[in-house]
Amino acid sequence: MRHTAARTRRAVLRLTTRWRESLKEATRRPDRGDISITTVIIWVAAVTGALVIAGTIAAVIARYNGNLNGI
């Protein structure tokens, strides 16, 4: 039981220390080069478009599979 409590205290201390360091760094350098919301929107749209195209191709192949065997 003591070992678990000691490990928990050490883990909390490490996390707290890391959290404080991160906050100091964020205060010191507010623009850390994070991805902008525009970039995220563009990526989501691109992936969605690719999935729609792939799904359409799969549906067409499944529907006309018998007709495409001779090609």
Rank of each mutant, 00 (worst) to 15 (best):
R2S: 05
T4N: 00
T4W: 02
T4S: 02
A5P: 00
A5L: 06
A6E: 15
A6H: 05
R7C: 06
R7Q: 08
R7N: 09
R7K: 08
T8R: 05
T8P: 00
T8D: 06
R9N: 04
R9D: 08
R10M: 07
R10I: 02
R10W: 04
R10A: 12
R10S: 08
R10Q: 11
A11H: 01
A11D: 05
V12Q: 08
V12N: 02
V12D: 07
V12L: 11
V12I: 11
L13T: 13
L13P: 00
L13Y: 05
L13K: 10
L13H: 07
L13Q: 13
L13I: 06
R14A: 09
R14N: 12
L15T: 05
L15Y: 04
T16E: 10
T16G: 11
T17C: 04
T17V: 12
T17H: 06
T17Y: 09
R18I: 03
R18T: 08
R18V: 06
W19A: 08
W19E: 11
W19L: 11
R20Q: 03
E21Q: 10
E21W: 03
E21K: 07
E21P: 00
E21A: 14
E21H: 06
S22W: 11
S22V: 03
S22A: 10
L23T: 08
L23W: 08
K24P: 00
K24V: 09
K24N: 07
E25Y: 09
E25G: 04
E25I: 03
A26Q: 12
A26L: 13
T27S: 10
T27N: 06
T27P: 00
T27A: 13
R28Y: 02
R28Q: 14
R28A: 15
R28E: 13
R28G: 02
R29Y: 12
R29N: 11
R29D: 01
P30G: 06
P30V: 05
D31P: 01
D31M: 09
D31Y: 13
R32N: 01
R32L: 11
R32C: 01
G33N: 05
G33C: 02
G33D: 04
G33P: 03
G33W: 14
G33F: 14
G33R: 03
G33H: 10
D34M: 02
I35P: 00
I35D: 05
I35T: 13
I35M: 11
I35F: 02
S36K: 15
I37Q: 13
I37N: 12
T38V: 10
T38S: 12
T38R: 15
T38Q: 12
T39E: 15
T39S: 14
T39Q: 15
T39Y: 06
V40Q: 10
V40K: 12
V40T: 14
V40I: 15
V40G: 01
V40C: 07
I41K: 15
I41E: 14
I41G: 06
I41M: 13
I42E: 13
I42A: 12
I42P: 00
I42K: 15
W43T: 12
W43N: 13
W43G: 01
W43E: 14
W43V: 13
